[in-house]
Lab assay of single mutants.
Amino acid sequence: GPMASDKRPRTAFTAEQLQRLKAEFQTNRYLTEQRRQSLAQELGLNESQIKIWFQNKRAK
């Protein structure tokens, strides 16, 4: 629909990254900035991508 703007492409996470994020989520529903930074480095992701993933996951 018209609401779907092309400005922010959805990140396609790899299965491996998703597995890691899910495991982290089961341990911590809320990430500290430090955890998020190390996860971002570990997974080669953007911190904001991880932050948003957690927000979306909590919203469900």
Score class of each variant (00 low, 15 high):
residue 11 T to L: 12
residue 15 A to F: 10
residue 4 A to R: 04
residue 35 R to P: 02
residue 19 Q to T: 11
residue 35 R to N: 06
residue 5 S to E: 15
residue 10 R to V: 14
residue 60 K to D: 07
residue 12 A to Y: 13
residue 59 A to E: 07
residue 51 K to G: 09
residue 4 A to N: 12
residue 27 T to N: 12
residue 40 A to W: 01
residue 17 Q to L: 03
residue 44 G to T: 04
residue 39 L to H: 00
residue 45 L to V: 10
residue 36 R to W: 06
residue 5 S to Y: 01
residue 31 L to R: 01
residue 59 A to G: 08
residue 6 D to T: 05
residue 18 L to R: 09
residue 17 Q to E: 02
residue 54 F to Q: 01
residue 56 N to E: 08
residue 48 S to K: 10
residue 6 D to F: 00
residue 21 L to I: 02
residue 39 L to T: 00
residue 53 W to C: 02
residue 52 I to Q: 14
residue 10 R to C: 15
residue 12 A to D: 07
residue 32 T to Q: 04
residue 33 E to F: 11
residue 36 R to F: 08
residue 32 T to L: 02
residue 41 Q to W: 07
residue 42 E to P: 00
residue 49 Q to P: 02
residue 30 Y to G: 04
residue 41 Q to H: 09
residue 55 Q to A: 14
residue 28 N to K: 05
residue 33 E to Q: 14
residue 45 L to R: 02
residue 41 Q to A: 12
residue 14 T to N: 07
residue 26 Q to C: 10
residue 39 L to W: 01
residue 4 A to T: 06
residue 18 L to E: 08
residue 15 A to L: 09
residue 60 K to N: 07
residue 30 Y to R: 07
residue 60 K to H: 10
residue 38 S to H: 08
residue 58 R to E: 05
residue 16 E to Q: 13
residue 40 A to R: 01
residue 26 Q to T: 11
residue 59 A to M: 11
residue 40 A to D: 00
residue 36 R to E: 07
residue 34 Q to G: 09
residue 56 N to S: 09
residue 52 I to N: 10
residue 38 S to G: 09
residue 17 Q to C: 03
residue 47 E to F: 03
residue 22 K to C: 12
residue 33 E to D: 12
residue 23 A to D: 10
residue 10 R to G: 15
residue 57 K to Q: 13
residue 23 A to H: 09
residue 11 T to R: 13
residue 24 E to T: 03
residue 8 R to N: 15
residue 35 R to F: 05
residue 57 K to P: 03
residue 7 K to W: 09
residue 57 K to R: 13
residue 12 A to G: 07
residue 1 G to M: 04
residue 50 I to V: 08
residue 16 E to S: 10
residue 16 E to M: 12
residue 7 K to A: 14
residue 6 D to R: 03
residue 4 A to F: 14
residue 54 F to V: 01
residue 41 Q to G: 07
residue 15 A to E: 08
residue 39 L to C: 01
residue 41 Q to T: 09
residue 44 G to H: 06
residue 8 R to M: 15
residue 20 R to T: 05
residue 13 F to A: 02
residue 18 L to H: 06
residue 10 R to T: 14
residue 41 Q to C: 06
residue 58 R to I: 09
residue 15 A to H: 11
residue 41 Q to S: 09
residue 14 T to W: 02
residue 57 K to S: 11
residue 59 A to W: 13
residue 38 S to L: 13
residue 23 A to S: 09
residue 40 A to L: 01
residue 39 L to K: 00
residue 15 A to D: 08
residue 31 L to D: 11
residue 44 G to E: 05
residue 18 L to P: 00
residue 22 K to V: 11
residue 5 S to W: 00
residue 47 E to S: 07
residue 24 E to Y: 03
residue 39 L to N: 00
residue 18 L to T: 06
residue 53 W to A: 02
residue 26 Q to Y: 09
residue 13 F to I: 05
residue 52 I to L: 10
residue 13 F to L: 08
residue 21 L to E: 00
residue 36 R to C: 09
residue 51 K to P: 01
residue 54 F to T: 00
residue 13 F to R: 01
residue 21 L to G: 00
residue 50 I to C: 01
residue 28 N to W: 04
residue 29 R to G: 05
residue 38 S to C: 08
residue 21 L to R: 00
residue 21 L to W: 01
residue 30 Y to K: 07
residue 5 S to Q: 08
residue 6 D to S: 06
residue 29 R to M: 07
residue 38 S to D: 08
residue 31 L to T: 03
residue 15 A to N: 08
residue 15 A to C: 12
residue 46 N to C: 06
residue 23 A to P: 00
residue 28 N to T: 06
residue 53 W to Q: 00
residue 31 L to C: 05
residue 49 Q to D: 14
residue 46 N to L: 10
residue 38 S to V: 14
residue 26 Q to N: 14
residue 39 L to E: 00
residue 43 L to M: 06
residue 55 Q to M: 13
residue 40 A to E: 03
residue 51 K to E: 14
residue 58 R to H: 06
residue 52 I to Y: 09
residue 18 L to N: 05
residue 46 N to F: 09
residue 36 R to K: 10
residue 3 M to P: 15
residue 24 E to F: 03
residue 46 N to Y: 08
residue 29 R to F: 05
residue 3 M to G: 15
residue 40 A to K: 02
residue 33 E to Y: 12
residue 23 A to L: 11
residue 56 N to T: 11
residue 5 S to D: 15
residue 17 Q to F: 01
residue 47 E to A: 10
residue 29 R to T: 04
residue 19 Q to F: 09
residue 36 R to T: 11
residue 28 N to M: 04
residue 37 Q to G: 07
residue 26 Q to R: 13
residue 54 F to I: 02
residue 35 R to K: 08
residue 57 K to H: 08
residue 34 Q to P: 08
residue 57 K to E: 08
residue 29 R to Q: 11
residue 51 K to S: 12
residue 36 R to M: 11
residue 36 R to A: 14
residue 31 L to S: 02
residue 25 F to I: 03
residue 47 E to N: 04
residue 10 R to M: 15
residue 50 I to E: 00
residue 28 N to Q: 06
residue 26 Q to K: 12
residue 48 S to F: 13
residue 59 A to R: 15
residue 18 L to F: 06
residue 30 Y to M: 09
residue 39 L to I: 06
residue 55 Q to P: 02
residue 43 L to F: 04
residue 43 L to W: 03
residue 19 Q to K: 12
residue 46 N to M: 08
residue 21 L to C: 02
residue 48 S to D: 12
residue 8 R to P: 15
residue 31 L to I: 08
residue 43 L to Q: 01
residue 23 A to I: 12
residue 42 E to T: 05
residue 50 I to K: 01
residue 37 Q to A: 13
residue 49 Q to V: 14
residue 58 R to L: 12
residue 22 K to A: 10
residue 57 K to D: 02
residue 1 G to R: 03
